[in-house]
Simulated scan of single mutants.
Amino acid sequence: MTEKQHKNVKRDIEKMLVDLGEDALTFEHIYLDSMNRQQTEYLLDRDHTECLLTGYSAVHRMRVIKRWHDLEKLAAIPALPENYISALEALLESKKSEAALVLVNKEQAAEIHDIKSLFKEGMTPTQFCKMLNGINTQKVNGWLAERNWLHNKSQSGIRWRATSYARDRYSQATLF
């Protein structure tokens, strides 16, 4: 479309990226050509492609812009089944997936209900973890601290308390 050889377009891209102070490796990609040789190409985003094209002639820019718009239109059109049987097969797969997700949701709801029944008002994360047998309470406390649910009140690392965020948002009874 630009009436330039691939190697020359690559050279133009490399020069443009140097001029912009950007690392060409960010855009570099390796592919295998028709003879199974490794070749380098650059996968540019829209801004960099437009920047590159403004250095080419108006005719070449327009060709690339029209092709780009055609590709965007194609990408926006959902792929339709080729025939009635393909459509029915796609519908069947969709319904199977939907049924599988419903089953998973039911199983998870039962597990969540079982776990919720273990919570008791005023229970600490450590007490809860001990009920689960084998859970590393320090890792759980660290995980809760990363999410702003707990903070360590003492320097020794053994006085975990609910943060005001967790206390105010979820109340002590539902936190642990």
Rank of each mutant, 00 (worst) to 15 (best):
K106V: 03
F119K: 05
E146I: 01
E41Q: 03
R37T: 07
A100V: 04
L150Y: 11
Q39K: 02
E93Y: 10
K15G: 11
G142F: 01
A100G: 05
L74G: 12
K96A: 05
V18S: 09
L32A: 15
L103C: 02
G55Q: 05
K15Q: 15
A24N: 05
W68Q: 02
L20A: 02
L92I: 06
N148R: 08
G122H: 11
N141Q: 10
L80P: 13
L88D: 08
R159Q: 07
N105W: 12
L71Y: 09
A110V: 03
A87Y: 07
R161D: 13
W149T: 00
E41W: 02
D45T: 05
M123S: 06
A100I: 03
I65H: 12
L74I: 07
Q172H: 09
G157R: 07
R159N: 10
S154F: 06
R63F: 10
A99G: 04
L43A: 08
Q108G: 03
L25N: 15
T40F: 04
E146W: 06
M62A: 13
N141L: 08
S34E: 01
A75N: 09
S117R: 14
I135L: 12
E89M: 15
E28F: 11
D23I: 00
Q38P: 01
L74R: 12
Q38G: 02
Y165K: 14
N105F: 11
S156G: 00
W68G: 03
H113F: 09
V18P: 00
K73N: 04
T137M: 13
T174Q: 09
A58C: 07
M16S: 08
E111S: 11
Q127E: 05
K120C: 10
Y31C: 00
K66A: 03
D114M: 00
Q127D: 03
F27S: 14
T163A: 03
D19R: 09
A99L: 10
K153A: 15
Y56V: 01
S34N: 05
Q38Y: 01
G55P: 00
D19P: 02
S86N: 10
Y56S: 02
W143P: 05
V9D: 00
F176L: 10
V102S: 08
A99Y: 07
E111H: 09
R161A: 13
V64C: 13
R37G: 11
V59T: 14
F119N: 02
K15N: 14
G134F: 13
F119D: 02
H113I: 01
I158E: 08
I158F: 08
A99M: 10
I115N: 13
L32Y: 14
M131Q: 03
N141E: 07
T54G: 06
A166W: 06
Q38T: 01
L32H: 14
R11G: 06
E111F: 06
R167H: 11
M35R: 15
Y84S: 09
K10D: 10
Q172D: 12
K73Y: 03
S94W: 05
A58V: 08
E82G: 07
F176M: 09
R11W: 06
D47P: 02
V64H: 12
E146S: 06
Q172I: 09
R37H: 14
R46F: 13
T2W: 13
G55S: 01
I112S: 13
I30C: 13
E82W: 08
R46M: 14
